[in-house]
C-alpha cells in the first residue's frame, strides 16, 4: 500500500490563498487505509480550512467529495461537476492520484498530502516502509527482506560498518536491514545465499519515466 500523511495546514492554506471556492478531493484507496485522505480526512481538512479562513476574515467555500480511486480515469470522472464549479482542488490522494486528477482538471490541483512510501500497516496508526519499487526484485536472495527498502543505505551486499547490536547507525530505533536478512537466512538454513554477489543496480532510468505496457492486454489493435 502507498502510505501518505497530511501536509501541514499552513502549506495547504498558502496554496489555496487566492481562491474563494475549492474542492477537497478524497480517495477510498490507499490513503483511506492509511488514514490520510479518506472521507473522514476530507471532512477534517475541509473544516479546518473553513475555520482558518473564516478566522482570517476571508471566508471560503469548501466542497467535499471522495471517489473510489483517483488513479483511474473512470472514477475521476465523478469529480466532473464539482471540479467545474470550483477555482481549485486540494487532492488528498497519493502523488499518483493528485497528478492524474490534475491532468483531468480544468482548475489547479494541489497536494493535500505528502506521499511517503510503499509500506505495510503494522497496527492502527503505525506504518513501515517495505518496498522501493526498484523494478528488479532481489527478495529471493535476501530471505524475503528487501535490502534496498530496509537498509538505510540500500546496500546490496551486506551491512556497512555502522551496524551495531542489530541496529542501524542512523538511529537505534531502526533495525539494521542486513542483520534482519542474516538472521532470517540463518533461521532458514540458507546462509550460503550470502555468498552470491548481487550486482550493482542500474538506477539510471535510461528510457525516462517508467511505463508498463502489456501488449497482450491492451485494447489497441495491431
Amino acid at each position: 500500500m502507498i502510505v501518505a500523511e497530511r501536509k501541514p495546514i499552513e502549506k495547504v492554506l498558502e496554496m489555496i490563498a487566492p481562491y474563494k471556492k475549492v474542492l477537497v478531493a478524497g480517495c477510498y484507496g490507499c490513503v483511506t487505509v492509511c488514514l490520510a485522505g479518506g472521507e473522514k480526512e476530507v471532512g477534517i481538512l475541509a473544516s479546518q480550512i473553513r475555520l482558518a479562513r473564516s478566522k482570517d476574515g476571508n471566508p471560503i467555500e469548501v466542497v467535499e467529495q471522495t471517489v473510489e480511486r483517483q488513479c483511474d480515469a473512470e472514477y475521476l470522472a465523478k469529480f466532473q461537476d464539482n471540479v467545474s464549479s470550483v477555482e481549485a482542488v486540494v487532492s488528498l490522494a497519493c502523488g499518483i492520484g493528485i497528478q492524474y486528477l490534475a491532468e483531468k482538471s480544468p482548475v489547479p490541483v494541489f497536494p493535500g498530502v505528502n506521499t511517503l512510501f510503499l509500506g505495510a500497516n503494522l497496527d492502527v496508526g503505525k506504518w513501515a516502509e517495505r518496498c522501493f519499487a526498484c523494478g528488479d526484485c532481489v527478495l529471493d536472495k535476501t530471505g524475503g527482506i528487501c535490502p534496498i527498502a530496509r537498509c538505510s543505505k540500500s546496500l546490496l551486499n551486506g551491512p556497512c560498518g555502522g551496524s551495531q547490536y542489530g541496529k542501524c547507525e542512523v538511529s537505534k530505533d531502526v533495525d539494521c536491514g542486513w542483520q534482519l536478512i542474516y538472521d532470517r537466512l540463518k533461521a532458514l538454513g540458507q546462509l550460503d545465499k550470502l555468498k552470491e554477489i548481487i550486482p550493482a543496480k542500474n538506477w539510471k532510468r535510461d528510457k525516462g519515466p517508467r511505463t508498463l505496457v502489456r501488449e497482450e492486454l491492451t485494447l489497441e489493435r495491431d
Binding site: 484507496g29 483511506t32 487505509v33 488514514l35 472521507e39 500497516n121 497496527d123 492502527v124
Partner: peptide, 11 residues
C-alpha cells in the same frame, strides 16, 4: 465506502 482497511476491526 468501506475500504476494508481494518481500522474498525482493530479498534
Amino acid at each position: 465506502k468501506c475500504a476494508v482497511c481494518l481500522t474498525c476491526y482493530r479498534t
